[in-house]
Simulated assay, not measured.
Amino acid sequence: MILFGASGHCKSVIDIAESIGERISVVYDDNPKAAAVCHIPVKKYMDGTDGTDESWIISIGNNRIRKKVKEKLQCDFGLLKHKTATVSKWSTIGEGTVIMAQVVINSCTSIGEHCIINSAAVIEHDCQIENFVHISPNASLAGGVTVGEGTHIGIGACVLPEIKIGKWATIGAGAVIIKDVPDGAVVVGNPGRVIHDQ
């Protein structure tokens, strides 16, 4: 497997791979700052780089940058799930997504492509998570929640059942979401309130 992006998030992705015995051969980056990450060599990415016969993961935490990188790479994308994560057999996970340690994803949930489901997050039954979403550590989504493309759910946030969160929104750390959130909104507090919208 090959990673793109030698950031701090890359180190977490390497841990996930190592937990299941998946070998990472190289990490590519547009602007490498180090020769290696966790002893894995880092190389400058150039168009036409070898390795398109292997599966790739974009190991970049920023949702918008992850989407831009995905649009330029011509390769097959893998999927990484930490060995301690629990994912219902009735749920689906899209390519390029990483599922970190102690995550719980319950029945009939759909996780899109190139998402980050971070450590100890809980996603209950019947949730719909679109592409390029980041669910931060210890965030909890109750049943039937919908999260639009590119949205970031902050650390420790709670989302009540059947809530719809729009695209490219930001839910602040520890926020409690009790009503629907429009596209592009920034929501903080308990109960959650919009402090910025499109």
Rank of each mutant, 00 (worst) to 15 (best):
A17C: 06
A175Y: 03
P32T: 03
P191V: 01
I153R: 04
I116Y: 00
P32W: 06
Y28Q: 03
V104Q: 09
S119C: 14
L141D: 00
H114V: 12
Q102D: 13
F132C: 02
D29E: 13
A157S: 07
K89F: 03
A6W: 07
I60C: 06
S55Q: 12
C127Q: 02
D50V: 07
E162L: 10
S107I: 04
K179D: 14
S107H: 13
Y28P: 03
C10S: 03
C75A: 04
C38Y: 07
A17G: 05
G78T: 12
H196P: 10
M1C: 09
V145S: 01
Q198W: 08
A34L: 15
I129G: 03
S107V: 15
S136D: 01
E18P: 08
V145K: 05
V176H: 04
K167T: 11
I165M: 05
I129H: 11
C158Q: 12
I163M: 10
M46E: 12
S119T: 15
K164W: 03
C127M: 01
G148Q: 06
S55N: 07
I163P: 02
K33Q: 08
T49V: 12
C75I: 11
T97C: 15
K164V: 09
K167R: 15
S59G: 08
H134R: 02
S110R: 10
N63I: 11
D30T: 13
T146L: 09
R64D: 06
I117S: 01
N190P: 05
P191I: 05
D183P: 15
F77V: 12
P41D: 05
T92S: 15
G166W: 01
P161T: 13
G150Q: 06
T49G: 04
V133G: 00
V133K: 01
E124C: 07
T92Y: 11
G166M: 01
I129Q: 03
G184V: 06
D29H: 02
D126A: 04
M46D: 08
I99E: 01
S59P: 07
E149R: 14
V133Q: 00
C158E: 06
V186F: 10
V159S: 00
T170F: 11
A173T: 10
V87Q: 05
L141P: 00
S110F: 14
K68T: 05
T109E: 00
G21Y: 08
V104K: 04
A120D: 07
S107A: 12
V176I: 13
W90K: 12
E18A: 12
C108A: 14
D180M: 14
F132M: 02
T52F: 12
K167D: 03
I129W: 04
K89E: 08
G148M: 13
A36S: 13
F77G: 03
N190I: 09
G21K: 10
N31V: 14
T49W: 05
S7Y: 12
L79R: 11
F132I: 01
I165N: 00
E95S: 13
S55C: 09
A120I: 09
Q74D: 14
K43G: 01
Q102N: 06
C38I: 04
K67W: 01
D53I: 12
H9E: 06
Q198Y: 10
G8P: 15
E95I: 11
E149I: 05
E130P: 11
I153G: 00
E95V: 13
N118I: 11
V122A: 07
I2K: 10
G166L: 03
S140F: 15
N106Q: 09
P161K: 07
I129L: 07
K83T: 15
I117Y: 04
D50Y: 09
H134Y: 09
A36K: 04
